[in-house]
């Protein structure tokens, strides 16, 4: 995974709540067997509407998504995270994310930042008025900064450490292989098995 330290970019304000993963990337895109090439599927249905915010020329190249509450609800598809990243987003800000989406984003280096709704509102207002307004998401300082706005955010220290260093979870876990083997040797025999090995 790519490390995330700090990022500054222009933003896309998305004033919708409950943006589910079927909206982020519709199911027919899930037939692909790779992690890339999902950018054209991002918000596919809404992008057919020329007035949709992502279609505005001044939003081209924006890298920070400022979303409504309950972003990423619904299915566990990691493709939603890949689609946002393939399109060019580096960070998403919302007052509340669905659990599975949040977990997926942090495993891929897409920083999801939780801020109070009134701060999200302020960021949306700012970037609606001024599409060029830079928004900084600083993971080292745990802070979001934009003109007239400085807001601290929380992220658990372990997740932050892994993001800052771009660490692969599997390698970290395999350092504790002895713990896994010890646990396995104690499992009761009544636990189900899919095949005899």
């Amino acid at each position: 995974m790519e490390a995330f330290t700090t990022h500054t970019g222009r933003a896309v304000p998305l004033r919708r709540s409950n943006v589910d993963t079927d909206q982020i990337i519709p199911a027919h895109w899930l037939k692909k067997v790779t992690r890339d090439g999902f950018e054209d599927g991002l918000f596919e249905a809404w992008r057919k509407d020329s007035s949709f915010v992502l279609n505005q020329p001044e939003r081209t190249g924006a890298t920070v998504l400022i979303a409504g509450p309950d972003f990423g609800t619904g299915s566990s598809r990691e493709h939603a995270v890949w689609a946002l990243q393939n399109y060019g987003f580096k960070a998403v800000i919302s007052s509340r994310f669905a659990d599975i989406f949040r977990g997926n984003s942090l495993k891929n280096g897409l920083l999801t930042v939780v801020l109070e709704q009134k701060i999200v509102d302020a960021l949306q207002e700012l970037t609606e008025k001024d599409p060029k307004a830079p928004v900084t998401v600083d993971l080292e300082a745990r802070e979001v900064r934009a003109e007239g706005i400085t807001a601290a955010f929380e992220l658990d220290e372990n997740a932050r450490w892994r993001l800052l260093n771009g660490l692969d979870d599997i390698s970290i876990t395999l350092q504790n292989e002895a713990d896994i083997s010890a646990y396995e040797s104690k499992r009761p025999s009544h636990k189900p098995r899919t095949v005899q090995v």
Partner: peptide, 23 residues
């Protein structure tokens, strides 16, 4: 029982474990 993303699918295939914060 809970749903996981593809990175976690790979993690479980490789380690039969998942690092998780207790809800």
């Amino acid at each position: 029982a809970f749903g996981i993303g593809t990175s976690q699918v790979e993690h479980v295939l490789a380690t039969q474990t998942l690092p998780l914060a207790r809800p």
